[in-house]
Design a protein around this nucleic acid. Structure first.
Lengths: 358, 358
DNA sequence: AGAGACTATCGAATCGATTCGACTCGATCG
DNA sequence: CGATCGAGTCGAATCGATTCGATAGTCTCT
């Protein structure tokens, strides 16, 4: 009988009774919030340990105090997809560090587009964080607004009540594109992350961008189009991973060499890595035949090329999300905050084949 | 003034008052647990929407019902490290699926060895899961035991109250080793995951295995030693990732060819991938010069070799963890459950150089 | 028409704490 | 010596729901 099933749950009242003090005094011992004589405190602690009392029930405590010490971290779709990207992990890691320092824990919630019921209805959280760019709107937001729960996001969902870490996605993407233009590339192409519900990797009709539900993907695509020659092909990847990056690149590169792009702007490093791999598989050298740019600046130890990319320090971004959350919980009303990214030139880009220059 | 700060929080009592019913009736409307006349229900819902009531407060509801609908998912160290391994992600994904189906959410908790205070003291959870192999013991376990909170683990922590998914780590590792022996390899080596607190990648004194705090790493090492020639070198990687796999392999392979191992058993696919890369960097062909085995059977799209490995379906393992949790929460006392793994032969192993045979 | 069953509703107890105001008792002060 | 103060303790209100048992009314069956 290792489990004493019969014993009713031990509560603060039991401890107080055994120690011969009132419940309120016992409570003060555990919270350390009031003056208690050393002898009394010792008696209460002794009673607690005699009874196997493991401290105040978090639920009751939270109810009374009106805070749960928990924030919701909302990711779309399955966790597997969300965390496959090292950039997402870096953001989450930075966020976790910051939350940890404030004694707050993360309730990981998947916001499936299809599910009718709201997972947040059943869980008490002090704030909600949307750490990864996702859909531009979500029914969850209305629920949280009604509950007056502060929300922090990284670009999405777009809503007045959500405080954002703001990145100039369009400008950054344009910067990457400009880098290729300045290297003499004239035949450019773009590989986007999903713009909405996953569709098999395909060449995009640029007019479809209007309908995009993922604002960051759309902005990056617009940044490319701002500088790329009119009619430059854009491929939308089904998932933002290496395999779909390869698939996208095959669509772009496996064509008549006359029309083959010499510079490809990819919306993430994983996609860019896929493009590099596909190019090599087709017998093309990077960057001699094809230049490739990524986005995020993640560390891919298995890729032999150092990508030219938009460096976006994920951990710092996560910490910033955490800091905004902290301030929101403290009662401040933090404003959306810009977050700087910059071009880092690596070995995956070079002068356009046949172009002159340094 | 988009935020009506003054308004006191809307509670069920306010809704009931406005609808002209008792609190209990209003409660029944939201929980759907009792008979309520359609007209009454409609009135209550109307009042709720008038007042901007977003449903019963989860904290109060949980307190009364004695369940929080949350389970703790405990990982060691920083999330970044825990989830870098695709295998860990697969387990987590399977677990998330199962928990999702039961309407339970995951509270992600990092159990840092150094931190004095217990993150679980402040959070209400119905169960705790240790989905990844970690330290064999943790102070958290005692706390959870005192609270009568069921625990489910994947090999660690080792404790009577923790229900486990049990894998024959030692046997599986021996199987991988036997595969190499049967291919004629006589100079074997082993690369382990960390056995305790991270130490720079180094050649291990086999006697140190006794002190290992990570039971799965130790068992796998023992499985290797069961079949490998006496004195075969064992290297402990600082982290279970590609970079340290490479570092470990350099220690083993960058030696006089006479003594160079021709078969390396790695404790994870990431480590094995690093070994393959390091071998190639040293001008050695895989498997012609060196055979390599991994563990887990994860998909590494960027690795051109299909690893010979111990296939361990992570998603299924995660689902099994979820199922054990479900049963524990239902009041059953599920027993620890074995989980089968098996050797999958790929392209990273072949006959020992110079050995005859098919 | 009266017994029995069922529906709809309500009041009160309860979950397990935190916290406010009041009270007691010595010690300090003028 | 009486007023004041602070430390230590306690009782009661409160957080916001769920749920049990009671009650009144309606319908069915014989």
């Amino acid at each position: 009988m290792s489990r004493p099933r019969q014993t009713r749950k031990v509560t603060l009242r039991d401890v107080a009774d055994r120690a011969g003090v009132s419940i309120s005094t016992a409570s003060l011992v555990f919270s350390g919030r009031g003056p208690v004589a050393d002898a009394t405190a010792e008696r209460v602690r002794g009673a607690a340990s005699d009874l196997g009392y493991a401290g105040p029930d978090p639920l009751a405590s939270s109810l009374r105090q009106g805070r749960s010490g928990t924030v919701a971290v909302i990711v779309e779709d399955r966790l597997l997809h969300a965390f496959r990207d090292p950039f997402a992990l870096a953001v989450l890691d930075g966020l976790a560090q910051e939350l940890d320092a404030m004694g707050t824990s993360m309730l990981l919630l998947a916001d499936h587009a299809d599910s009718p019921d709201n997972p947040l209805a059943a869980h008490a959280v002090d704030a909600a964080i949307f750490p990864l760019c996702g859909r531009s709107d979500s029914p969850i937001v209305d629920h949280l607004t009604a509950r007056h729960i502060p929300m922090v996001g990284a670009g999405a969902p777009v809503h007045d009540e959500v405080v954002h870490v703001v990145i100039d996605e369009r400008g950054a993407s344009a910067t990457a594109t400009r880098h290729l233009v300045e290297l003499g590339h004239t035949r450019l192409a773009h590989v986007t992350m999903p713009l909405g519900a996953p569709r098999p990797t395909h060449t995009l009709d640029v007019d479809d961008l209007e309908a995009a539900t993922y604002p960051d993907s759309r902005e990056r695509a617009l940044g490319f189009l701002d500088l790329a020659p009119h009619g430059s092909p854009v491929v939308e990847a089904e998932h933002p991973d290496v395999a779909e990056g390869e698939a996208a690149a095959r669509l772009l590169l496996d064509v008549d060499p006359e029309h083959r792009p010499t510079g490809i702007v990819a919306q993430s490093d994983l996609l860019a890595a896929g493009v590099v791999r596909a190019a090599r598989a087709l017998g093309l050298a990077v960057p001699a035949d094809v230049s490739v740019t990524g986005f995020d600046g993640v560390d891919l130890p298995w890729l032999d090329t150092r990508l030219t990319t938009i460096e976006q320090p994920g951990e710092a971004k996560g910490r910033l999300l955490g800091d905004l959350t902290r301030r929101a919980l403290a009662g401040e009303s933090p404003a959306s905050t810009p977050f700087e990214v910059r071009l880092r030139v690596g070995d995956s880009t070079g002068r356009a084949p046949g172009s002159s220059g340094a």
